[in-house]
Design a protein around this nucleic acid. Structure first.
Lengths: 334, 334
DNA sequence: TTGTACGCGTTATCAA
DNA sequence: TTGATAACGCGTACAA
């Protein structure tokens, strides 16, 4: 059974009010009794109940972190950033998975509401309108990561998909490629379009004519398989370079190339997106666009703190960073 | 401002007691008023306060999941398993990182205690005696993952390091290797010894003499670099195969081999441990010992549920599974 | 400087 | 079938 301030009060022969004050260093309590009570609390192993405090103060110093699944290689670092800043500010994090299942999304939102979290951070690949409405009904600050939406309580931290994809494509163009393919993912409609736009903008700027055949949108599948299917871009359409929606897709393509004796990057250059851990470990190491995941998590939590302190905040669109490794090569090496 | 049962009571013209009962389907309330009140609650957007419920019931339906850092590639799947089972049972999960920092470990434990979590799951590479004592003072069921300790409230789920390492070594022996190296990690003293024991047991059983030169314990470093340093086993001591402490280490070795033009597996076979995501993506795909991470998480949470229901539980030692990929090859291929 | 009384939102006991 | 009251652990206005 946990020790309460009443228990301490009894032992000290004072009221629980005095104990409460003494423990929090209230100035109106004499230095001596304060010291005495604090010492007593220590001895008795007193730890205040956040539950009772929350009931009284109407804030829980708790936030909900909603993910589709924490097993997504993109997420752990984001969560790490969130948790770090949260912990430093005295907040604890509820981790909740929605698994992209509408039913679970509802229970997750309801649970968050029951738990009276002070704020919510969501990184879901899809925040449907229904889901978004549900979220907003909680009347609590919400920060979306990589998923802009409109709404009074909705704010966002996101990577600039257009800029990132353009950067990647420009890299390929600079080293001499002209037949450049794009592998999109229909399961991520929004950012897919943005990355496609970035790709097209780079081509246009370089005066390279668009060829619809070079844009490959595999049927919905897991990301890796989409990459495998994309080999046709090379086999049927003779692209010399491919920009993939993300690293997993790029690695899928990379793997198939190995199986088909297609040398990367000599025969085909490949660029990914995200810079997940595995990107540096595959062979050849993957050129990619890095998303500052740790920082995104930190920023999201900082934004939450600002919102809770009634400070005004601005949505952030972060640039992706080109990481050149060994999966891309000049088409005309010197 | 959140709706409370008192608000509903006012509107319905009854006491808050009646509302409380009606909402929970208490039999002593007339069917009609029950229906009426439930409907009213729905309309008013009532969501019960878990905080108030917890204060009264003295349980929070909350557990603490302590990790060193969620960015460790081993952990996400474990957490996924925990969260899944927890959610299905009506529990929510606090995710807390200790970063292997003694000071943070203390604050984490204290926070868990303040929050009055019903139980704790810990997967830390090191649960020092001090840390363990602190943990046990909370008087709450605790399940350790991959870290056996003794204590009244301490239980564990772990992979059988000895068996796993033996399995891996036997695989290498079976395909003809006799000069087999072992790369250990001093940062994980306990399981390091166990894996070493498994390695030695396999050699002994096969009648292969032990050679201390083939056991390499690099100075504490990050796991990847330890793998890189292990190249000396091949260069100086002519091993034809190496068992690495974990996949990251194995991938470090793999990467260095590529840089030194050492063909894997033709010149050197490599086996890892864990079967992290990246293991299947590297080239060549890594032969390794799989830890059933998702299942370990599920089992840990199930064990917690049993403990909370006063059921008796047994510590579990799970076998590792040999996953043969392409980083190992018979030394005398047919 | 200290204590009394009340409220936070919910459930449970007892009486009506 | 329903309601008044107390209790969970804590913080605070007000009184002493």
């Amino acid at each position: 059974m946990q020790v309460t301030i009443k228990d301490i009060a009894k032992v000290a022969g004072v009221s629980h009010t005095t104990v409460s004050r003494a423990l929090r260093g209230h100035p109106s309590i004499s230095a001596e009794t304060t010291r005495h009570i604090q010492q007593l609390a220590e001895q008795m192993g007193y730890v205040p109940s956040a539950v009772a405090q929350s009931l009284h103060s109407r804030q829980t110093f708790t936030i909900g972190m909603v993910v589709t699944t924490i097993a997504d290689p993109f997420l752990p670092q984001v969560v790490e950033g969130v948790e770090k800043v949260a912990q430093a500010a005295g907040y604890s994090v509820f981790l909740m998975s929605s698994h992209n299942d509408p039913e679970q999304e509802l229970t997750v939102v309801e649970t968050l509401q029951r738990r009276r979290v002070d704020a919510i951070i969501v990184t879901a690949s899809r925040v449907g309108s229904l889901y978004g409405d549900q979220l907003e009904r909680i009347q609590v600050p919400i920060v979306l990561i990589n998923n802009q939406e409109n709404g009074e309580f909705l704010h966002s931290i996101a990577v600039d998909d257009v800029q990132g994809a353009r950067l990647a494509t420009e890299h390929l163009i600079e080293v001499g490629h002209r037949r450049i393919g794009f592998v999109g993912l229909l399961t991520r409609p929004k950012s897919n379009v943005h990355r496609l736009l970035g790709y097209q903008a780079a081509l246009e700027k370089a005066g390279i004519p668009q060829d619809p055949d070079l844009i490959f949108l595999p049927p919905p599948n897991d990301d890796f398989q989409c990459g495998e299917l994309a080999l046709s871009l090379h086999l049927k359409h003779q692209v010399t370079a491919v920009l993939c929606y993300n690293d997993i897709t790029a690695i899928g393509l990379l793997t198939t190339c190995r199986r088909h004796q297609i040398a990367v990057p000599q025969d085909l250059s490949i660029v990914g997106f995200d810079d997940i851990e595995a990107a540096q470990y595959v062979s050849p190491p993957l050129t990619t666009i890095r998303q500052p995941r740790l920082r995104m998590g930190e920023l999201a939590m900082r934004m939450i703190l600002d919102l809770l302190n009634k400070k005004s905040v601005r949505d952030q669109l972060l640039p992706g960073e080109l990481i050149v490794r060994e999966s891309t090569l000049p088409i005309y090496p010197n």
